[in-house]
Amino acid sequence: MKILDKKQLAPEIVKFVVEAPLIAKKAQPGHFIILRYKENGERIPLTIADFDREKGTITLVCQGIGKSTREINQMEKGDSFLDLLGPLGKAYPVQKLGTVVCVAGGLGVAPLYPKAKALHEAGNRVIGLVGAQRKEMLIMAEEMAAVCDELQFSTDDGSFGHHGLVTEPLRAVLAREKVDEVVAVGPVPMMAAAVKVATEFNVPVVVSLNALMVDGTGMCGGCRVTVGGQTKFCCVDGPTFDGAVVDFHELLMRQRYYRDQEKEALHRCKLEEAGK
């Protein structure tokens, strides 16, 4: 569980290469891990953004949003995570479908990349559409470029690539040619919007849901999501689901439940930092 390499990808976004031979051996696109970085820390789920079976390493990408993720991002090469459990979740079933559009918003590139890579290796034509707030927040562009037959960028402020939402190039591609599947990963509103566009064109769309989790092993049910009118446990039944039947509104509400507590923790953390 030692951090072998650390790289700052963007402001607040850090990539870690971690020694985890057992997990690397089993990892598949779509899998995630649960991590605890210190004794009184939370259990944090992070997608396996890449893995190297030979070297026995996995790659994690962490965005410092709350207190815990900010503290994780302060860990250095040579440090060790306290606990690392995985691989968890159902693997994304990689098939040769033809043409697949992989759409990512923000940090969504990290979970999307292993899927894009596997789709590419399976012989699909992969079109990558990567969106971010602004240019400096675009991450993993080189990695994506290596596995995409076509790659477009968009930024909300127009500082790089298409000026606007990532769903706009998605619409353009779907209008332009026949696509067999859309894979969309990112913030909930972005995934919901991507699903809407894909459904308009009658293209199947899979998403990767980031529900709040505790154990990640099906023991608490805190990660419940409604898919096709049925309750599913995101950690065991997902995190990859058929986007067309996901209740995104419920997911968004559930993600916000602890917002006040998270703010409080972050506020205290900042006070402590200021005090130092």
């Binding site: 939370e42 207190k67 815990s68 505790v214 608490c220 805190g222 998270e262 409080e264 923790a265 205290r268």
Partner: peptide
Amino acid sequence: YSANEFLTRVNLMKAYRFPEFETPIR
């Protein structure tokens, strides 16, 4: 909550000592 989630947050993750322990409970 399921009782499992509620009790896990409190017993395993010690949410009753939030924010010293970082897992929240409402």
